[in-house]
Design a binder for these strands. Structure first.
Lengths: 156, 156
DNA sequence: TCAACCTACATGACGCGTCATTCATTCCAC
DNA sequence: GTGGAATGAATGACGCGTCATGTAGGTTGA
């Protein structure tokens, strides 16, 4: 591998800026959510998915695909959320192996309380810094990279 | 907070795509680095910073600023890297409170071995999916958000 | 029908990241 | 110079994420 093609100047600074933004933005949003609502970003994402279904109930593997998480991460996270009474687990009649994850009243309340402040933070720290063109480009860019990642995941 | 301004359509999908890309790209790069070089992305970043100095030696607070990390994260991480003999700690003459973090031979070797494969992965999963305009926009976008984050950090 | 295989999910171990706290040293106003 | 604030750094506790593994239940085909 003596002939590595390194990143060019523009790629380098873009990558560095992206990494910096990524890490610090995630940390800051996490802090905001945690301190004002006692939720993590991960909790928030799970609750959003459950809230988006009519009966607040999903099979873990559906959640997994919607979130793009690893299976064991989801399982661990659900256990922690269950301990805090944000979600419950129920047996699944159709499939003896399976289960249902159910939004509890406390969970529903938690995300309803947290959402406005979180959206506000996302807007303030992120979208207020961008013009519409940049937002559109971000969408295209992220979608293209996601396709790459899907291909890589399929290859694994 | 009854009058929350939610995200518009374009912002929603951009945000979702960004979050998806962010999480999965980080996970994938971590996996690649871990499995081929037994290093984490965090290890890699620390080693890069140390390699960039003439004598492979930095004060922790300099590393902290360069990486944009929390102080305690860095301290914990350096302890773990020290246990694996990737870095060493030395006393600091000029300031009795301070210390030096020093790149070990093993650390220097580790990043030299890891760099080609990592850069290759970054290129394959990320830059190969983008055209130059998108890279340029990403840089502008990330820089703008970083400014926001600096402002938020200063306010804290 | 039953063995081989696959799918849905859980768990233990271990490294990572944050918060709160602690400690020593240095800086500075007076 | 000295008491108080600020700075540089470490640590314990605890939630998070990954890998490897385990297990029960479904599916398929000879």
């Amino acid at each position: 591998m003596a002939d590595t093609r390194w990143l060019d100047e523009g790629q380098q600074r873009a990558w560095r800026a992206y990494l910096g933004m990524q890490g610090r933005l995630t940390a800051e949003l996490n802090r905001q959510l945690q301190s004002t609502s006692n939720l993590s970003l991960a909790d928030y994402d799970v609750l959003v998915q459950l809230t988006d279904t009519p009966d607040g109930r999903l099979r873990p593997f559906e959640l997994q695909r919607a979130l793009g998480w690893e299976q064991s991460r989801l399982s661990h996270h659900l256990s922690r959320m269950q301990r805090r009474d944000l979600v419950g687990r129920e047996e699944c009649g159709e499939d003896g192996r399976g289960a249902y994850v159910v939004l509890t009243d406390a969970g529903r309340q938690a995300i309803a309380d947290a959402a406005p402040g979180h959206v506000e933070a996302v807007r303030r720290l992120f979208f207020d810094a961008l013009d519409p063109d940049e937002v559109e480009t971000l969408y295209r860019l992220a979608s293209a990279v996601l396709d790459r990642l899907d291909a890589a995941a399929a290859r694994r």
